[in-house]
Protein backbone atom coordinates (compact mmCIF):
# COMPACT_ATOMS: atom_id res chain seq x y z
CA UNK A 1 0.00 0.00 0.00
CA UNK A 2 2.72 2.35 1.00
CA UNK A 3 4.65 1.91 -2.23
CA UNK A 4 1.74 2.83 -4.46
CA UNK A 5 1.04 5.97 -2.47
CA UNK A 6 4.68 6.93 -2.54
CA UNK A 7 4.89 6.66 -6.31
CA UNK A 8 1.74 8.63 -6.77
CA UNK A 9 2.82 11.53 -4.64
CA UNK A 10 6.35 11.66 -5.93
CA UNK A 11 5.12 11.74 -9.51
CA UNK A 12 2.84 14.70 -8.85
CA UNK A 13 4.05 18.03 -10.23
CA UNK A 14 5.22 20.44 -7.59
CA UNK A 15 3.85 23.56 -9.22
CA UNK A 16 6.12 25.75 -7.14
CA UNK A 17 7.60 28.96 -8.46
CA UNK A 18 11.34 29.07 -8.15
CA UNK A 19 12.58 31.39 -5.45
CA UNK A 20 16.19 32.42 -5.77
CA UNK A 21 18.26 32.43 -2.65
CA UNK A 22 15.34 32.29 -0.30
CA UNK A 23 15.07 28.95 1.35
CA UNK A 24 12.05 29.97 3.32
CA UNK A 25 9.84 29.17 0.36
CA UNK A 26 7.13 27.43 2.30
CA UNK A 27 4.64 25.66 0.14
CA UNK A 28 0.97 26.25 0.66
CA UNK A 29 0.57 22.56 1.07
CA UNK A 30 -2.62 21.04 2.36
CA UNK A 31 -2.35 18.93 5.47
CA UNK A 32 -2.21 15.36 4.27
CA UNK A 33 -0.88 12.13 5.63
CA UNK A 34 2.74 11.35 5.03
CA UNK A 35 3.21 9.76 1.64
CA UNK A 36 6.04 7.58 2.82
CA UNK A 37 6.19 4.10 4.18
CA UNK A 38 6.14 3.61 7.92
CA UNK A 39 8.02 0.87 9.74
CA UNK A 40 5.48 -1.87 9.66
CA UNK A 41 6.34 -5.37 10.71
CA UNK A 42 5.64 -7.90 8.01
CA UNK A 43 7.08 -11.00 9.59
CA UNK A 44 3.85 -11.95 11.34
CA UNK A 45 5.88 -12.67 14.47
CA UNK A 46 4.70 -11.42 17.82
CA UNK A 47 6.02 -11.76 21.30
CA UNK A 48 4.65 -11.19 24.78
CA UNK A 49 6.74 -8.78 26.82
CA UNK A 50 6.35 -8.35 30.55
CA UNK A 51 7.85 -4.95 31.14
CA UNK A 52 8.32 -3.51 34.60
CA UNK A 53 6.44 -0.20 34.75
CA UNK A 54 6.54 2.08 37.72
CA UNK A 55 8.67 4.48 39.72
CA UNK A 56 10.24 4.87 43.14
CA UNK A 57 6.83 4.58 44.77
CA UNK A 58 6.20 1.13 43.27
CA UNK A 59 5.22 -0.66 40.12
CA UNK A 60 4.55 -3.99 38.47
CA UNK A 61 5.04 -5.99 35.30
CA UNK A 62 2.73 -4.96 32.47
CA UNK A 63 1.99 -7.34 29.61
CA UNK A 64 2.28 -6.22 25.99
CA UNK A 65 2.01 -8.04 22.67
CA UNK A 66 4.58 -6.61 20.28
CA UNK A 67 5.40 -7.62 16.70
CA UNK A 68 9.03 -8.18 15.75
CA UNK A 69 11.22 -9.00 12.77
CA UNK A 70 13.88 -11.57 12.23
CA UNK A 71 17.29 -10.41 13.39
CA UNK A 72 15.99 -7.91 15.93
CA UNK A 73 17.23 -7.39 19.46
CA UNK A 74 15.20 -6.73 22.63
CA UNK A 75 15.85 -3.01 22.36
CA UNK A 76 14.19 -2.91 18.90
CA UNK A 77 11.09 -4.47 20.37
CA UNK A 78 11.13 -2.06 23.32
CA UNK A 79 11.42 0.83 20.85
CA UNK A 80 8.49 -0.49 18.80
CA UNK A 81 6.49 -0.81 22.00
CA UNK A 82 7.27 2.81 22.86
CA UNK A 83 6.46 4.08 19.37
CA UNK A 84 3.15 2.27 19.10
CA UNK A 85 1.72 1.51 22.55
CA UNK A 86 3.67 3.07 25.42
CA UNK A 87 5.23 6.41 24.37
CA UNK A 88 6.16 7.31 27.95
CA UNK A 89 8.06 4.04 28.57
CA UNK A 90 11.34 5.15 30.13
CA UNK A 91 14.44 3.43 28.78
CA UNK A 92 18.03 4.57 28.32
CA UNK A 93 19.91 3.83 25.12
CA UNK A 94 22.42 5.45 22.78
CA UNK A 95 24.68 3.57 20.41
CA UNK A 96 22.66 0.42 19.85
CA UNK A 97 25.86 -1.45 19.13
CA UNK A 98 27.20 -2.51 22.51
CA UNK A 99 29.67 0.37 22.75
CA UNK A 100 28.12 2.87 25.16
CA UNK A 101 26.65 0.74 27.94
CA UNK A 102 23.40 2.68 28.34
CA UNK A 103 20.66 0.08 27.86
CA UNK A 104 21.47 -2.28 30.72
CA UNK A 105 18.48 -4.21 32.07
CA UNK A 106 17.52 -7.60 33.44
CA UNK A 107 15.94 -9.71 30.71
CA UNK A 108 14.41 -12.94 31.98
CA UNK A 109 16.39 -12.24 35.12
CA UNK A 110 19.76 -11.97 33.37
CA UNK A 111 21.66 -8.67 33.43
CA UNK A 112 22.28 -7.80 29.75
CA UNK A 113 22.59 -4.95 27.28
CA UNK A 114 19.23 -4.80 25.52
CA UNK A 115 20.93 -3.78 22.27
CA UNK A 116 23.02 -6.96 22.15
CA UNK A 117 20.32 -9.44 23.15
CA UNK A 118 18.84 -11.01 20.05
CA UNK A 119 15.24 -12.15 19.90
CA UNK A 120 16.38 -15.47 18.42
CA UNK A 121 17.67 -16.42 21.88
CA UNK A 122 14.13 -16.72 23.20
CA UNK A 123 11.31 -19.18 22.76
CA UNK A 124 8.64 -17.05 21.05
CA UNK A 125 5.87 -18.91 22.86
CA UNK A 126 7.13 -17.81 26.26
CA UNK A 127 6.77 -14.26 27.61
CA UNK A 128 10.00 -12.30 28.05
CA UNK A 129 10.39 -10.23 31.19
CA UNK A 130 12.27 -6.95 31.00
CA UNK A 131 13.12 -5.33 34.32
CA UNK A 132 15.43 -2.53 35.49
CA UNK A 133 18.74 -3.27 37.21
CA UNK A 134 18.00 -4.25 40.77
CA UNK A 135 21.08 -2.90 42.50
CA UNK A 136 20.21 0.73 41.83
CA UNK A 137 17.21 2.78 42.94
CA UNK A 138 14.37 3.04 40.43
CA UNK A 139 13.79 6.29 38.60
CA UNK A 140 11.07 5.08 36.26
CA UNK A 141 10.34 1.88 34.32
CA UNK A 142 13.70 0.58 33.01
CA UNK A 143 15.68 3.62 34.14
CA UNK A 144 17.60 3.47 37.41
CA UNK A 145 19.57 5.97 39.43
CA UNK A 146 23.18 4.97 38.83
CA UNK A 147 24.69 7.98 40.62
CA UNK A 148 26.40 5.64 43.11
CA UNK A 149 28.86 4.78 40.35
CA UNK A 150 29.65 8.39 39.52
CA UNK A 151 30.17 9.11 43.21
CA UNK A 152 32.66 6.25 43.58
CA UNK A 153 34.47 7.33 40.40
CA UNK A 154 34.99 10.81 41.82
CA UNK A 155 36.84 9.40 44.84
CA UNK A 156 39.49 7.51 42.86
CA UNK A 157 42.78 9.42 42.65
CA UNK A 158 43.37 10.03 38.93
CA UNK A 159 46.26 8.92 36.73
CA UNK A 160 49.41 10.70 37.86
CA UNK A 161 52.35 10.33 35.49
CA UNK A 162 55.81 11.86 35.79
CA UNK A 163 57.18 14.21 33.14
CA UNK A 164 57.44 12.97 29.54
CA UNK A 165 60.71 12.08 27.82
CA UNK A 166 62.86 15.03 26.63
CA UNK A 167 61.20 14.94 23.18
CA UNK A 168 57.80 15.50 24.81
CA UNK A 169 56.63 11.94 24.12
CA UNK A 170 56.07 8.99 26.43
CA UNK A 171 57.21 5.46 25.78
CA UNK A 172 55.54 2.22 26.85
CA UNK A 173 55.86 -1.22 25.33
CA UNK A 174 52.70 -2.74 23.86
CA UNK A 175 53.20 -5.83 26.00
CA UNK A 176 53.19 -3.61 29.10
CA UNK A 177 49.89 -1.97 28.18
CA UNK A 178 48.03 -5.02 26.86
CA UNK A 179 46.54 -5.82 30.23
CA UNK A 180 45.47 -2.29 31.11
CA UNK A 181 43.96 -1.90 27.65
CA UNK A 182 41.68 -4.81 28.54
CA UNK A 183 40.48 -2.84 31.57
CA UNK A 184 39.91 0.26 29.48
CA UNK A 185 37.48 -1.65 27.27
CA UNK A 186 34.93 -1.10 30.05
CA UNK A 187 31.82 0.61 28.66
CA UNK A 188 30.43 1.48 32.12
CA UNK A 189 27.17 -0.40 31.63
CA UNK A 190 27.34 -1.19 35.37
CA UNK A 191 26.02 -4.72 34.82
CA UNK A 192 28.91 -6.00 36.95
CA UNK A 193 27.82 -3.66 39.72
CA UNK A 194 24.26 -4.87 39.26
CA UNK A 195 25.12 -8.53 39.60
CA UNK A 196 27.68 -8.19 42.41
CA UNK A 197 26.39 -10.01 45.49
CA UNK A 198 28.23 -7.70 47.82
CA UNK A 199 26.23 -4.63 46.84
CA UNK A 200 23.16 -6.10 45.09
CA UNK A 201 21.42 -7.30 48.20
CA UNK A 202 23.21 -5.19 50.79
CA UNK A 203 22.66 -1.48 50.38
CA UNK A 204 24.88 -0.85 53.42
CA UNK A 205 27.85 -2.38 51.61
CA UNK A 206 27.87 0.36 49.00
CA UNK A 207 29.80 2.45 51.55
CA UNK A 208 32.36 -0.30 51.98
CA UNK A 209 32.91 -1.79 48.54
CA UNK A 210 33.43 0.13 45.31
CA UNK A 211 32.15 -2.73 43.16
CA UNK A 212 33.71 -4.65 40.24
CA UNK A 213 33.65 -1.71 37.80
CA UNK A 214 35.92 0.28 40.07
CA UNK A 215 38.15 -2.64 40.90
CA UNK A 216 38.78 -2.68 37.14
CA UNK A 217 39.50 1.04 37.18
CA UNK A 218 41.81 0.72 40.18
CA UNK A 219 43.61 -2.24 38.61
CA UNK A 220 44.14 -0.20 35.47
CA UNK A 221 45.76 2.63 37.44
CA UNK A 222 47.69 0.25 39.66
CA UNK A 223 49.18 -1.56 36.65
CA UNK A 224 49.79 1.51 34.48
CA UNK A 225 53.51 1.60 33.68
CA UNK A 226 53.69 5.41 33.94
CA UNK A 227 51.56 6.04 37.01
CA UNK A 228 53.33 7.26 40.16
CA UNK A 229 50.75 6.82 42.90
CA UNK A 230 50.39 3.83 45.19
CA UNK A 231 46.67 3.37 45.74
CA UNK A 232 47.01 0.10 47.66
CA UNK A 233 46.07 1.60 51.02
CA UNK A 234 42.85 2.88 49.44
CA UNK A 235 42.16 -0.32 47.53
CA UNK A 236 42.36 -2.21 50.80
CA UNK A 237 40.52 0.34 52.94
CA UNK A 238 38.20 2.85 51.29
CA UNK A 239 37.40 0.70 48.24
CA UNK A 240 37.23 -2.60 50.12
CA UNK A 241 38.77 -5.12 47.72
CA UNK A 242 38.75 -7.75 50.46
CA UNK A 243 34.95 -7.84 50.44
CA UNK A 244 34.85 -9.52 47.05
CA UNK A 245 34.34 -13.24 47.51
CA UNK A 246 35.30 -14.19 43.96
CA UNK A 247 32.05 -15.68 42.70
CA UNK A 248 32.92 -14.31 39.23
CA UNK A 249 29.35 -13.25 38.46
CA UNK A 250 30.71 -9.89 37.29
CA UNK A 251 32.99 -11.56 34.78
CA UNK A 252 30.13 -13.65 33.43
CA UNK A 253 27.90 -10.69 32.63
CA UNK A 254 30.57 -8.31 31.28
CA UNK A 255 29.52 -7.46 27.70
CA UNK A 256 33.03 -6.22 26.96
CA UNK A 257 34.45 -9.62 27.93
CA UNK A 258 36.78 -8.22 30.59
CA UNK A 259 38.15 -10.89 32.91
CA UNK A 260 37.19 -8.80 35.90
CA UNK A 261 37.84 -11.33 38.63
CA UNK A 262 40.91 -13.06 37.27
CA UNK A 263 42.73 -10.11 35.75
CA UNK A 264 41.67 -7.23 37.99
CA UNK A 265 40.31 -8.25 41.39
CA UNK A 266 42.50 -11.22 42.25
CA UNK A 267 45.74 -9.39 41.33
CA UNK A 268 44.57 -6.42 43.40
CA UNK A 269 43.88 -8.69 46.36
CA UNK A 270 47.35 -10.19 45.96
CA UNK A 271 49.05 -6.82 45.75
CA UNK A 272 47.23 -5.54 48.80
CA UNK A 273 48.07 -8.65 50.80
CA UNK A 274 51.69 -8.59 49.66
CA UNK A 275 52.14 -4.98 50.62
CA UNK A 276 50.85 -5.64 54.13
CA UNK A 277 51.89 -9.14 55.03
CA UNK A 278 54.70 -10.25 52.74
CA UNK A 279 57.94 -10.15 54.80
CA UNK A 280 60.14 -9.96 51.72
CA UNK A 281 58.20 -6.99 50.37
CA UNK A 282 58.42 -5.42 53.82
CA UNK A 283 62.20 -5.95 53.91
CA UNK A 284 62.46 -4.62 50.37
CA UNK A 285 60.74 -1.42 51.42
CA UNK A 286 63.12 -1.03 54.36
CA UNK A 287 66.18 -1.49 52.17
CA UNK A 288 65.21 0.70 49.24
CA UNK A 289 64.34 3.51 51.66
CA UNK A 290 62.19 5.46 49.26
CA UNK A 291 59.09 3.85 47.82
CA UNK A 292 58.91 4.02 44.04
CA UNK A 293 55.40 5.36 44.18
CA UNK A 294 53.73 7.85 46.46
CA UNK A 295 51.24 6.07 48.72
CA UNK A 296 47.79 7.66 48.84
CA UNK A 297 45.74 7.07 51.93
CA UNK A 298 42.90 9.53 51.41
CA UNK A 299 40.37 9.34 48.61
CA UNK A 300 40.51 11.92 45.85
CA UNK A 301 38.70 15.16 46.32
CA UNK A 302 38.70 17.70 43.54
CA UNK A 303 38.20 20.62 45.94
CA UNK A 304 41.10 19.55 48.13
CA UNK A 305 43.27 18.90 45.07
CA UNK A 306 42.70 22.23 43.40
Amino acid sequence: MADATTEEVRAAPTGQARQEGDGAARAEAPARPSPRARPEVTSGREVTLLVWRGDASGGSFVEYRVPYEEGEVILDVIHRLAATQAPDLAVRWNCKAGKCGSCSAEVNGRPVLQCMTRMSLFDPREPITVAPMKTFPIVKDLVTDVSFNYEVASRIPPFSPGPPDPDGKRRMAQTDVDRIQEFRECIECFLCQDVCHVIRDHEENKRLFAGPRFMVRLAELEMHPLDNLDRRPLIRGEFGVVMCNITKCCTEVCPAGIHITDNAIIPLKERVVDSYFDPIAWLGRKITRRPRRTPVTRPWSAEAAS
Binding site: R26, A27, A29, A31
Partner: peptide
Protein backbone atom coordinates in the same frame (compact mmCIF):
# COMPACT_ATOMS: atom_id res chain seq x y z
CA UNK B 1 11.74 21.05 -4.10
CA UNK B 2 9.43 18.25 -3.18
CA UNK B 3 11.32 17.79 0.09
CA UNK B 4 10.83 21.46 0.96
CA UNK B 5 7.13 21.10 0.29
CA UNK B 6 6.88 18.02 2.45
CA UNK B 7 8.84 19.73 5.20
CA UNK B 8 6.29 22.55 5.16
CA UNK B 9 3.55 19.99 5.78
CA UNK B 10 5.60 18.36 8.50
CA UNK B 11 6.22 21.76 10.12
CA UNK B 12 2.47 22.27 10.22
CA UNK B 13 1.93 18.83 11.71
Amino acid sequence: RQALEELAVLEER
